[in-house]
């Protein structure tokens, strides 16, 4: 694995074999593989059960376990057809809404947090430490306490019921953790790089863009994925700010409503879940390579 963006630093050289790999190799390999397989199976099994369930007929789901599939395979696509039926469930519209909510809710906090993390790590200004601790501590404010005050503001400004409250709320809620994680990454960047740029007369703006941003890309991609997942799967914020109509509400909300006013609809939830997983999993697979060399947060100091 080559850590491309960091090759400019003399301290870190391309890694051929990581310590872990060596350790693993020396650990009796069959056991290591077995352990890995056990963990992987344990972690995948529950989801796998749901995947099978999503193709099973409604009554079978209620009456027998999903493993019955192996002895008595009954396959149907009805559950998937039902969730795309535009007259009732209509997941398509909510799918679009989820995307509309997610994109700004990832980009906005990401860029703001990058700026802030840079400031906390490399700019000496008064009150920096106190401010940083304050931002860090804000992670604990339970979202629930913010909902009514924020909705009141949104209603007064006249943007309630649009995408704006969701964008602003998600962006705000993401900031403390984003800043904390990015700061942990940014502060590990060798000081020499920044000093050198400063000597060349670069200001903080150009250092940020010319030096930091290229190094930060993987970390940003990594946090971007996390934030994307959190927003994509959020229900609480959506419940309060999006309501139940199909103009703004994301897919999670419709999934939650799927169970019907008074019924259980496990079959629809099963298929609906897989529709909603498609995007996050795709995003993960596509961006995984950034991920791998991405969050170097807290790695050994250069």
């Amino acid at each position: 694995m080559t850590v491309t963006p960091l090759t400019t630093t003399p301290e870190v050289t391309p890694v051929q074999l990581s310590a872990a790999a060596v350790a693993k190799k020396r650990l009796s390999s069959p056991w290591a593989s077995l352990a890995a397989i056990v963990i992987a199976v344990l972690w995948t099994l529950p989801t796998f059960g749901l995947l099978l369930s999503s193709f099973r007929p409604e009554l079978d789901i209620k009456r027998t376990g999903w493993w019955t599939f192996f002895t008595d395979p009954q396959v149907t696509l009805d559950n998937y057809r039902a969730v795309f039926d535009s007259d009732s469930v209509n997941l398509g519209t909510y799918f679009v809404n989820s995307l509309m909510i997610c994109i700004p809710s990832v980009l906005i906090p990401l860029s703001l947090a990058a700026l802030a993390a840079y400031a906390f790590a490399w700019i000496n200004f008064r009150g920096k430490n106190i401010l940083f601790v304050a931002v860090f501590a804000l992670q604990i404010v339970p979202l629930q306490v913010t909902l009514i005050p924020l909705l009141t503001i949104f209603a007064k400004v006249g943007i309630a019921g649009t995408f704006w409250p969701l964008w602003l709320a998600h962006s705000t809620f993401a900031l403390p953790l984003a800043i904390y994680l990015l700061h942990n990454f940014i502060k590990e960047i060798p000081a020499g790089l920044i000093e050198a740029a400063r000597v060349d007369g670069a200001g903080h703006v150009s250092i940020f863009f010319r030096v930091m941003l290229p190094l930060l890309t993987p970390a940003l991609a990594a946090f971007g994925i996390f934030q994307f997942l959190w927003v994509w799967n959020d229900l609480l914020v959506a419940l309060v700010f999006a309501g139940g109509g199909d103009t703004v509400a994301p897919i999670t909300l419709q999934l939650a409503n799927l169970t019907g006013t008074r019924g259980t609809a496990w079959h629809l939830l099963a298929s609906g879940t897989f529709v909603s997983i498609i995007v996050p999993v795709t995003v993960f697979l596509l961006l995984q390579r950034y991920f791998v060399r991405g969050l170097l947060a807290g790695s050994v100091k250069g």
């Binding site: 972690w43 997942l229 999934l255 879940t273 997983i277 996050p280």
Partner: peptide
């Protein structure tokens, strides 16, 4: 990706 998968799943699911 297998271990990561649960993160991609909403709580409802």
């Amino acid at each position: 990706a297998l271990i990561f998968l649960p993160m991609a799943i909403s709580m409802v699911a």
